[in-house]
Amino acid sequence: MPSTVKGVIARAKGAPVEVVDVVVPDPGPGEAVVRVAACGVCHTDLHYREGGISDDFPFLLGHEAAGTVEAVGEGVTDVAPGDFVILNWRAVCGQCRACAKGKPWYCFSTHNATQKMTLTDGTELEPALGIGAFIEKTLVAAGQCTKVDRAAPATAAGLLGCGVMAGFGAAVNTGGVTRGDSVAVFGCGGVGDAAIAGASVAGATTIIAVDIDDRKLATATEFGATHTINSKECDVVEEIRSLTGGFGADVVVDAVGRPETYEQAFYARDLAGTVVLVGVPTPDLKIELPLIEIFGRGGALKSSWYGDCLPARDFPMLIDLYRQGRFDLDGFVSEKIGINDIESAFDKMGKGDVLRSVVEL
């Protein structure tokens, strides 16, 4: 029978979040109910609260989560009750033209649970990124559950559900960083630091962290940055060139998503180098670049959606790297908080005081 549990909603644009009773249906065909153990507080959750994603209030917030499958619906075979899973927001269909081409990370028909979770008065909730995990248990499509080893605690493992995977994948999957490469990363929040960690795991020998906050630059070195640049204090393009033999970096990751950082990233790459945009720009932002420079420099200008990841492939691999001591997932967890502390976490996020606050449920 349906469960009534505590969850965190954004009822209206800009209004403080609320902890309320939420009704979670029993799973239907192709669905699963997951008891959430932990969920990271991501910028995307704040964007939902601020109306930056859509106007479909009220939203059930939270999406970077790990927990245990409690029940599954008809036809579900990939996961079973008792499985420890990381939730993902791109459950691939296996049938669209991207999947048919062997590129399921570009799936055009990703799906969520068919049923809706509701308030006790029947008001339907829109789950953030189709997940909604600031809640004791949530309803998702079974394909949004990726079974992994319990080697990593849920507080760390759940971060693979969004920001950490996005950054790691931007460097390794989208950027194709490999041994001996030089890499520059603009923006050293959680996504940028994950890109730095990914570049280090992949064997890059020069990894340059760029930010305007010395605290973030210091943290970036803990994830593998070999050099740091405070872009308020110098010409960042010239500084990156000076650190790469005068050429520029092989791969430059923009984890900010601003026209000024993208332009710097464009000019900071080597000839035939790659620029990867993983920072999410707002719809109003535009950029202008000389077409002759785009032509003359060659290489590739790419965007990275969710780190171009395939959860079934990448989540277990990253947990294995964690287990081997090669990928410090715990390092992304700045603090562990309760379900009533999310507004405070948003405030700390805005001030740059945390990589990730993680809600324990």
Score class of each variant (00 low, 15 high):
109 S>D: 14
317 M>R: 15
298 G>N: 07
351 K>G: 13
312 A>R: 15
4 T>R: 09
170 A>C: 11
205 T>D: 05
345 A>P: 04
154 A>Q: 00
254 D>S: 09
324 Q>R: 15
214 D>A: 11
303 S>W: 05
219 T>F: 06
197 A>K: 00
122 G>W: 13
352 G>K: 02
288 E>F: 04
32 A>L: 12
45 D>L: 05
339 I>S: 01
22 V>L: 05
301 L>P: 02
40 G>C: 08
119 L>H: 03
43 H>V: 04
2 P>M: 10
339 I>M: 14
154 A>S: 14
265 A>R: 11
107 C>D: 05
280 V>H: 02
56 D>N: 14
169 G>D: 04
149 D>K: 04
263 E>C: 01
311 P>H: 07
254 D>F: 10
243 L>E: 07
347 D>M: 01
183 V>E: 13
122 G>V: 11
17 V>A: 06
144 Q>P: 03
26 D>H: 03
15 A>Q: 14
275 V>L: 15
335 E>N: 07
137 K>E: 15
8 V>A: 03
115 Q>V: 03
130 G>E: 14
140 V>T: 01
300 A>L: 14
85 V>A: 01
327 F>H: 00
203 G>L: 14
145 C>A: 14
107 C>W: 12
179 R>M: 11
65 A>S: 14
120 T>V: 15
112 N>A: 15
230 N>K: 09
189 G>D: 11
176 G>P: 11
4 T>V: 15
305 W>C: 01
143 G>K: 04
14 G>Q: 06
191 V>H: 04
248 G>R: 12
98 A>E: 15
